[in-house]
């Protein structure tokens, strides 16, 4: 069983974002980068499936700058077998170009992928797009936001996903693509042994053309400053006005 996990190097969500002088990108100097948290669930799921089957390969793949090799190493340290680095000097921002490039690289893998896993979203671009886009480009069945995953004896996958107000149970026949959500598992920490072993694991750099971007960030700006609180009224009488303001002004309902 060959499981491919798509991963991304992202700025730590706790870090302060500074818009660069070009007005379109962020300042990366001094920024702390991590493996996208949602991708950790995907890696863990892949490792668990491999352990359950008792055989197979877990390949982690990323598209990004030279520094993204470090992100691949963290995944290899968790237990993945093989890394694939599609190098591009800048982090691409267009979901289609990213998905198209990854899809081409997945098609070129030997042995072919039986299952592709990806985090539901990257915490920086938060488009929730690359997983389902790759699946559509490769004509793979796709279930997003998976919170439970079980392999059945005959090889089908029983997956659960949260939907508005409930959850769905689906059966998926590999090859397929799943995106992983919080709650699916507890990602393991890399052991010292794993970290040492990761240094010897192969990272391939196949020559895959970077697909042209179909969208571009024209400008970045800071969100409007948070406004102070406001007392709407007192007691039950204030509720209708509060609901109206939450709905119409704050737009949170």
């Amino acid at each position: 069983m060959h499981i491919v996990v798509l991963i991304k190097r992202v700025p730590d969500t706790a870090s302060k974002i500074t818009i660069a002088a070009d007005g379109r990108t962020i300042e990366t100097a001094g920024l702390q980068f991590v493996l996208n948290p949602y991708d950790e669930f995907a890696i863990e799921a892949a490792l668990q499936l491999k352990e359950q089957v008792g055989a197979g390969t877990v390949t982690v793949m990323t598209l990004g700058p030279a520094e993204a090799a470090q992100t691949l190493r963290s995944a290899l340290a968790m237990g993945a077998d093989r890394g694939v680095h599609l190098e591009h000097e800048q982090q691409l921002g267009d979901p289609y170009a990213i998905a198209r490039t990854l899809a081409t690289a997945i098609q070129g893998l030997a042995p072919p992928a039986d299952l592709v896993l990806a985090g539901r979203q990257a915490v920086d671009s938060q488009s929730l797009a690359v997983g389902p886009m790759v699946a559509s480009l490769l004509e793979l069945p796709c279930v997003t936001d998976v919170t439970r995953l079980e392999r059945q004896p005959e090889g089908k996958l029983r997956v659960e996903r949260e939907v508005e107000g409930g959850h769905e149970v689906l059966l998926v026949e590999p090859p397929a693509l799943l995106t992983t959500n919080k709650g699916l598992n507890e990602p393991r920490y890399a052991s010292l042994k794993g970290i040492m072993a990761a240094k010897k694991k192969p990272i391939e750099e196949p020559a895959v053309p970077i697909a042209p971007a179909l969208s571009a960030i024209l400008r970045l700006e800071y969100p409007p400053a948070r406004q102070g609180g406001r007392i709407v009224g007192e007691g039950a009488a204030a509720v209708p006005e509060l609901v109206r303001l939450l709905r119409e002004e704050a737009k949170v309902l």
Binding site: P11, T13, K16, I17, I19, I26, V123, D124, Q126, P212, A213, L214, S215, A216, I217, L218, R219, L220, E221, Y222, P223
Partner: peptide, 12 residues
Amino acid sequence: YAGKAIAEVGFE
């Protein structure tokens, strides 16, 4: 970036 910036996006 978790709401820490707003992007204007154009299309090709």
